[in-house]
Computed example of a mutant assay.
Amino acid sequence: MITKENILATAKKTILSESEAITKLATYLDENFSKAVQSIFESKGRLIVTGIGKSAIIAQKMVATFNSTGTPSLFLHASEAIHGDLGMVQKEDVIICISKSGNSPEIKVLVPLLTRFGNTLIGMTGNMTSFLAKGSTYVLNTTVDAEACLINLAPTNSTTAQLVMGDALAVCLMELRDFKAEDFAVYHPGGALGKKLLLRVKNMIEHSLKPMVSPEDSVKKAIFEISEKRLGVTAVIENNIVIGIITDGDVRRMLNDRDSIADLTAREIMTKNPKMVTSETMAVEALNILEDFSITQLIVTDNGEYKGVLHLHDILKEGIV
Rank of each mutant, 00 (worst) to 15 (best):
M88G: 05
A133H: 09
D257H: 06
L114S: 04
G87R: 10
C97A: 15
L153R: 07
K134A: 15
V284N: 07
H313K: 04
L255T: 03
L312Y: 13
A64F: 13
A185F: 06
H188I: 00
K13P: 06
I151N: 12
A148N: 06
Y306A: 05
G249I: 00
L173Q: 02
I122G: 04
L132S: 04
M62L: 15
T120V: 15
I40G: 08
T278K: 03
D167F: 14
E20N: 13
S73L: 12
S214E: 14
K221I: 09
K54G: 09
S294V: 01
Q297A: 09
N67M: 05
T296R: 11
S19H: 06
E80Q: 12
G308S: 06
A36H: 10
E80T: 08
S99C: 05
A133R: 05
R267P: 00
S136G: 13
I289W: 13
V109W: 09
A185K: 01
F184L: 07
L29W: 11
A185W: 08
I22H: 03
P72V: 05
F117G: 01
I7Q: 09
A185T: 00
N6Q: 14
E106C: 06
I15G: 02
V284M: 14
S99Q: 02
I237W: 15
N119D: 08
S136M: 13
L74P: 05
L163H: 14
V251N: 10
A222T: 00
V49D: 10
L193Y: 13
V219T: 05
T120R: 07
E92Q: 12
Q60E: 15
L132M: 06
T115H: 04
T10N: 15
G87V: 10
L198T: 00
A262Y: 08
F179R: 02
E147G: 04
A181P: 03
G126E: 12
L153M: 14
T281F: 03
A168W: 13
S34K: 03
V213C: 08
A154N: 15
T137G: 01
E182Q: 09
T234E: 10
Q38P: 00
Q297F: 05
T296F: 11
R253I: 04
K196H: 01
K108M: 05
G87M: 12
G84A: 10
F184C: 04
I96P: 07
N119T: 06
L264A: 05
D167Q: 13
T14R: 02
I315N: 01
N141L: 15
G45T: 03
S73P: 13
L150S: 15
P105H: 02
